[in-house]
Amino acid sequence: MRTCLVVDDSSVVRKIARRILEELNFQIIEAENGERALEACRRAMPTAVLLDWNMPVMDGHQFLLELRRLPGGDLPKVVFCTTENNIDHISRALEAGADEYIMKPFDRDIITDKFHEVGLIAAATPA
Results as ranks from 00 to 15, higher is better:
residue 94 L to D: 01
residue 12 V to Y: 11
residue 96 A to P: 01
residue 66 E to R: 15
residue 6 V to R: 01
residue 12 V to A: 15
residue 103 M to E: 10
residue 98 A to K: 02
residue 109 D to N: 05
residue 83 T to A: 15
residue 16 I to S: 05
residue 110 I to A: 06
residue 86 N to I: 02
residue 97 G to V: 04
residue 73 G to T: 14
residue 20 I to R: 06
residue 80 F to S: 05
residue 126 P to H: 11
residue 38 L to H: 09
residue 35 E to M: 03
residue 7 V to I: 13
residue 86 N to D: 15
residue 97 G to P: 07
residue 34 G to M: 10
residue 121 I to R: 06
residue 76 P to Q: 03
residue 19 R to I: 00
residue 25 N to A: 14
residue 16 I to C: 08
residue 125 T to Q: 14
residue 2 R to Q: 12
residue 55 M to E: 09
residue 96 A to M: 00
residue 66 E to S: 14
residue 68 R to A: 06
residue 16 I to E: 11
residue 93 A to Y: 06
residue 37 A to F: 04
residue 70 L to A: 08
residue 69 R to Q: 15
residue 123 A to Q: 13
residue 101 Y to W: 05
residue 97 G to Y: 08
residue 2 R to E: 00
residue 17 A to Q: 01
residue 17 A to Y: 03
residue 39 E to P: 01
residue 44 A to T: 13
residue 109 D to F: 04
residue 104 K to W: 08
residue 33 N to Y: 03
residue 18 R to I: 03
residue 102 I to A: 10
residue 85 N to V: 13
residue 81 C to V: 05
residue 27 Q to W: 01
residue 25 N to Y: 02
residue 96 A to I: 02
residue 125 T to V: 15
residue 103 M to G: 13
residue 79 V to G: 01
residue 48 A to E: 02
residue 3 T to W: 06
residue 33 N to H: 15
residue 38 L to V: 05
residue 42 R to L: 14
residue 20 I to P: 06
residue 91 S to V: 10
residue 113 D to P: 00
residue 87 I to Q: 14
residue 59 D to G: 15
residue 70 L to R: 10
